[in-house]
Simulated assay, not measured.
Amino acid sequence: MPMETTTTTATESMSKMETVRGTHRFTFHGYSLCKGGGAGRCIRSGTFTVGGYDWCICFYPEGQGGGGGGDREHVSVKLRLVTRCATATAFYELRLLDQDTGRAAAVARASGAPRVFASSNPGTACFGRRAFMERSKLEASPACLRGDSVVIDCAVRVVVHDPVVAAVRRREAPDDVPPSNILRQLVAQVESEGADVTFAVQGETFTAHRLMLAARSPVFKAELYGAMKEKDADHVIAIADVQPAVFKALLHFIYTDDMPPDLGLAASDDDDDDTDRIDMARHLLVAADRYAVERLRVICERVLRRSLGVETVIDTMALAEQHSCGELKEACLEFIDSHSKRIVESDGYKNLKRACPLLVADMWERIVRSRV
């Protein structure tokens, strides 16, 4: 009688829910020109992307309408999912700003549980608050309605489901494909024996791979392989004017296309006013521009845009001018226009006025032209 053979199958899996965070600032100029349009007239922001979905802010200067008594004397604000035929689960916070202090004068948020947005359903395509702020209160506040402009900040956290196969061990199915670990392998290679180029940065050394650097940066490609090839490329290349921590972060981004998690510069990080974080973003922007790592430069620009403040905007604008960051410069000009009185009294503005009078003159000319 033949013996029976038993095959044991052991499997493991893991699934996790995460959120991807993004922010958008919407400045609406010409509030007084909307009077008389009636309830339901919507002013939409530009489209922005968070978590793979497109969104916009909907502002109703004379209320959204259709809600009955309570919201008739209020402005309304909503967050709308723009992506067609899509469903997204998200937390949100909408804040109408006091433009003197930068604090919220009115807030609408998804508290407790996230909202399920469905763009194909008018009832769930957008969420917010009909009775967001009393119009009389808004119109009586020079700080909220500075220069006939309203500023609304929006923070969105999109819930994403990321199934990850932690380990799969199936003796009878050798063709099962394990999850990709290419990024972990590439990061490990930074300090491996296969590295073929060494950099000296202010007393610290970093090893890397020429092919990886050349593939990710046209400047490194020219320095390591082209006509600009460093004469000491076979030995140690000295890097001047870059801090070791900045160069280390640059290498991490080149190998992984992402920020080191300990820097707090990822797109989902909170936009707190942290001096070290802002300083690192500035230094990384300079390094990204120097080595033509475009995606890193754009990420740093966005971090600095979200971190603008009265004490930082002048230095950030000078940096944007020096490195031809057009969007960042426009954001700085818009912020200066909204907080001009406090900014002209700051030390940063006085220093810039002495050092770069032409830049200051150009700044005010552009602000004046934008108001016309």
Rank of each mutant, 00 (worst) to 15 (best):
T5H: 02
T316Y: 02
L359S: 12
R306G: 15
A240Q: 11
G194R: 07
A118T: 08
P174R: 08
F253Q: 01
L211F: 09
L284M: 12
Y255C: 07
R44W: 10
H74M: 00
R184N: 14
R282D: 11
P357H: 11
C300G: 06
C42N: 07
P218S: 08
T7F: 06
P2I: 02
R184Y: 11
A361D: 10
V77K: 03
P261E: 14
A281P: 14
G123F: 09
G52C: 13
R305L: 15
P174S: 08
P61S: 02
A227K: 09
V344G: 08
S141I: 07
M363G: 02
S307K: 09
H161V: 15
R169Q: 14
E345K: 05
E334V: 15
T312W: 03
Q202K: 07
C34W: 14
H283C: 07
E191Y: 07
R282V: 13
D337L: 14
Y53D: 09
C56F: 11
Q185P: 04
D337W: 08
I43A: 12
P114S: 00
K350R: 09
T7L: 06
D100C: 13
G51R: 00
E345G: 06
T275F: 15
D362Q: 10
V246E: 07
V344K: 04
I336A: 14
A331Y: 05
D337N: 13
A215S: 12
D241K: 01
H161M: 14
G348W: 06
Q322S: 15
G46A: 15
E301R: 04
I314R: 02
I254F: 09
